[in-house]
């Protein structure tokens, strides 16, 4: 009888990172619209930052020029949905669930309210979402985007989402 419990050797950090990045990539790659918009996600631990690289066809007002309000709404909605899905998925991933076979269905947007604070300049935009409340059926998510200066957000939004029923999980 030993006086201590034998612990598992921790996994190498590179293995952990690869598993997390792979899972995030799989989650994002399933949605054609995210690929079309060119939206990418940067991960640090469980925190995600979305990136919308500037493209000419994202312009809505060619006179100013300014990014299309609809493109920015879409960017925020994508960021909210992926962040919400990721926040539910993360603990399962860390528990070592078989990820590819149990990729969750995405939550569905119930409503989405966007405030336009400043016009979007013709350059890259970034966004982060915060899951304010996440329950079994409903979730509330807050999200905002900025460009060069994080303290000057260009657009912010709040949305409610319907979580996929457990039986819907694949």
């Amino acid at each position: 009888m030993n006086g201590y419990v034998r612990r598992k050797t921790p996994e190498p950090v590179q293995v952990i990172k690869e598993r997390r990045d792979e899972a995030l990539k799989d989650l994002v790659a399933r949605v054609p619209y995210i690929g079309y918009m060119g939206i990418d996600f940067d991960r640090r631990g469980d925190e995600l930052t979305a990136l919308l690289p500037y493209r000419e066809d994202l312009i809505g007002n060619p006179m100013l020029p300014a990014l299309h309000g609809g493109a920015l709404s879409a960017f925020l909605e994508v960021t909210a949905l992926i962040t919400l899905s990721w926040s539910v998925f993360w603990p399962k991933l860390e528990d070592g669930d078989k990820i590819n076979s149990s990729m969750p269905r995405l939550p569905r947007t119930i409503d989405f309210t966007v405030d336009f604070l400043r016009s979007g300049l013709p350059r890259d935009a970034y966004a982060r979402a915060q899951v304010v409340r996440s329950g079994r059926r409903y979730a509330s998510v807050s999200v905002s985007a900025w460009q060069d200066n994080h303290s000057r957000p260009i657009v912010q939004a709040n949305g409610h989402f319907l979580m996929p029923a457990p039986s819907e999980a694949q």
Partner: peptide, 21 residues
């Protein structure tokens, strides 16, 4: 390329936002 739900082929809400806007 506007599909938001790969399981059903439903258009992403973001594209509908852009249309509404």
């Amino acid at each position: 390329h506007l599909i938001g739900d790969p399981d059903t082929g439903v258009i992403h809400g973001g594209a509908i936002s852009a249309l509404m806007d």
